[in-house]
Computed example of a mutant assay.
Amino acid sequence: MFMADCASDDGSGIWTSKSHMAADLEMSKRTVQNAITQMIEMGIISETGIRKCKNGFTKEYRINLAALSALKSTRAGDSPVQEIHPTGAGDSPQGVQEMHPNHPLTIHEPHKEETKVSKKAAATRATSIPEDAVITEKHFELVEKHGHSRQEIEAQFQKFKDNALANGRTYKNWDAAWRNWFASPYFSTLTGGGRNEFARKSTTQNARSVSRSDPALERIARLAGLSEAQGHGGA
């Protein structure tokens, strides 16, 4: 059948290589060679010459139409025509409608594996932060190691959210983005720093006030002709 498809109307001009025939027929080259040898022995085809090709040459064949016509038919015979009996349902009042394999209303269920892949892809897809996002206890726990007060963390969350919305940022993991915010160049304290910051500043200010002399006492000491230490003692 393959060689007949390549032949002219008189059966001549078949010069397709056996390698191409084997590839198109999805069989081995040896099988093609054996089949051609058998057909030559049966007189169905014959070699008529050689044609040059880019890989050297290939043989040209011809189908012997007379020998082919003399072969015994391999069909089981013509099947007798069967009479069609009516079903009694009657003729349809409407014309016969053509059935289309891809009807617009046909629902094609996705394969289970495709559904799993789609869900997995959706789970790892970058998303935007919701405009109504609010800080939760989880947010405090994620950054509590930085030692900031709850007031500072609340202020930072609002800044983090505003920055994400203003710049259209999308992340696959917003919890990780929130943790990294405190190490990003956008971070700066908004309410005075950590929960121990106020105590540290107060201690520093007290130490400075102790080491610094009182201006009023210094003036009194100068007027009295006393030293600064004596002035403090007299006071």
Rank of each mutant, 00 (worst) to 15 (best):
T136W: 13
P185T: 08
R30H: 10
T124N: 10
E137D: 13
M21C: 06
M42W: 08
I129W: 00
M27H: 02
G77S: 01
G234N: 14
R125K: 15
H108R: 10
F182G: 01
H100P: 01
M1N: 14
G231I: 04
H232W: 07
K119N: 14
A155M: 01
D91N: 13
E113F: 07
N196M: 09
Q94D: 14
S188M: 00
Q205K: 14
W181H: 06
A76Y: 06
A177W: 00
T58V: 14
A126T: 00
V96Q: 10
R125W: 07
L226Q: 06
A23K: 12
E197A: 15
E98K: 13
N55E: 11
D175M: 06
N55F: 05
H20N: 05
P130G: 00
L223G: 14
E47C: 11
F187G: 01
S28M: 07
L217G: 01
A67M: 08
L217S: 00
S69N: 03
N196H: 06
E218V: 05
T191V: 05
M3H: 04
D9Q: 07
D91S: 11
P130S: 03
V117M: 14
N163T: 05
Q94N: 11
A133I: 06
V117P: 00
T204N: 06
A70N: 12
L68W: 06
N163V: 02
V210C: 09
A4W: 04
P86M: 09
G234V: 13
W174H: 04
I45V: 07
A229F: 00
R179H: 12
H108Y: 04
K112V: 03
I129T: 03
F140N: 05
E47G: 07
H20W: 04
E60M: 10
I84D: 04
A126D: 01
F160C: 05
T58N: 07
G49I: 05
D91K: 11
D132W: 01
K120D: 02
A177S: 09
M42K: 14
A35C: 08
T87Q: 13
N102P: 04
V210E: 12
K138H: 11
E98Y: 09
E228M: 08
S202A: 15
F57L: 01
T37P: 02
T115P: 02
A7S: 15
A183N: 15
F187Y: 07
K52S: 15
Q151D: 12
H85C: 10
K120C: 03
Y186T: 12
A4H: 05
R169K: 14
Y61R: 08
I220D: 11
L142K: 00
G231W: 02
